[in-house]
Write a protein that binds this DNA or RNA. Structure first.
Lengths: 200, 200
DNA sequence: CTAAATAACTGAGTACGCTCATAATTGAGT
DNA sequence: ACTCAATTATGAGCGTACTCAGTTATTTAG
């Protein structure tokens, strides 16, 4: 019988520590150079693990990006939801949620696009992917919540409207046409479409 | 001085012939086995060209898929536009346009998803990509046209509504959640969202 | 007809994501 | 302490998309 380990045994601790090192290494390299310019070897080296070990913690390179980017997305979402609470107009409130998300996916535009691509096209069975999906669900719920404030929109099914807003966001943030636009321009484009959606 | 060649010189002819062989080879292999299960080597062999030659005609494997799939998409679009002319209800007409597109992108679902992915994330400077983009523009125009039939919708900017429909289509056809749905179910999902969009 | 110039073709080679057979580590049972 | 099954780590090796230096085919100029 063990003395009920407050630190969960050496094995679990080592695993956690390695995951931390890998996450930190990937975050730093991806953020600085962009996911496409970094090799999995480099991440493994920086994390001081074997190149094969990397793939025990993230099944693909894209999963590694999800692992890193989910954190930023979650922060953006929280920030947006808070900001939305202060808005009175529905569209303004929706945009308050969306704006931090735009920013977080365009700080390093290549990473943001790859992240969103992976959410739609990646394997939803992977754990980091599942987390990303739950973030998009939370985003839609937050938007639906805001839409539900309005009587008229309440009758039009906020959840479904939120789903459409989500589609608009995705295309507006990923389409290569928007690559050279500023964050503000992308935001305006989205706002414009949402206005049309909610009934001109 | 040459006898003004009605066949554009041997060089041009050879190039055209090679492109035809490559297109045919890619179409057959991709259709039968799915783009992920076919190597560029196999396509090159079947087309009877060197493996490097392939990449003179399509800069990436994905471009090769665009080359092949654009033809099918164009057919689907034409078919849909024709069918829409026979419909009286706006939503029915829009669905008449969309349905063949759903089908063409789900006959071989892997190819369809890869095709759509490439449209959004690929290099728009490539010629086959440009053609694909023009097809999506034509699709949106066709949808806008149909929406414009309705007085109320006319006031809501059909072009922008069509853009939103386009986003709905994209997500509904690519999201991994829809992978195991039937074409009809995907269609119903899209119709449902379009109904909400056009005002409950 | 020949030579020079240009365009097109080629496949061996490269880079990189990922796998898998083997090795090292761990902890429960004795 | 020791054993051993189970878990985790490792890096050489593999498959494949794509490149590029060298070759061949075609056109143009003299």
């Amino acid at each position: 019988m063990q003395p009920a380990p407050q630190t969960l045994g050496r094995r679990e601790r080592n695993k956690q520590e390695k995951l931390d090192r890998i996450t930190a290494a990937a975050r730093e390299l991806f953020t600085q150079y962009g996911v496409d310019e970094v090799t999995t070897q480099q991440v493994a080296e920086k994390a001081d693990v074997g190149s094969g070990t990397l793939f025990l913690y993230a099944k693909t390179k894209a999963e590694l990006l999800l692992l890193v980017h989910n954190v930023k997305y979650a922060q953006a979402l929280t920030k947006g939801v808070d900001a939305a609470a202060a808005e009175t107009e529905v569209v303004d409130a929706v945009m308050a949620i969306i704006r931090p998300i735009i920013e977080c996916n365009r700080v390093q535009i290549e990473n943001g696009r790859t992240y969103l691509k992976e959410i739609v096209f990646g394997d939803p069975a992977e754990p980091h992917h599942a987390e990303a999906l739950s973030l998009t669900v939370r985003t839609e719920e937050a938007i639906a919540d805001v839409l539900g404030r309005d009587e008229q929109l309440l009758a039009r099914d906020p959840a479904k409207l939120a789903r459409i807003v989500s589609a608009i966001m995705f295309i507006s943030m990923t389409s290569s046409a928007t690559k050279e636009l500023t964050d503000a321009q992308v935001g305006d484009g989205i706002r414009d479409q949402i206005s049309v959606l909610l009934g001109a």
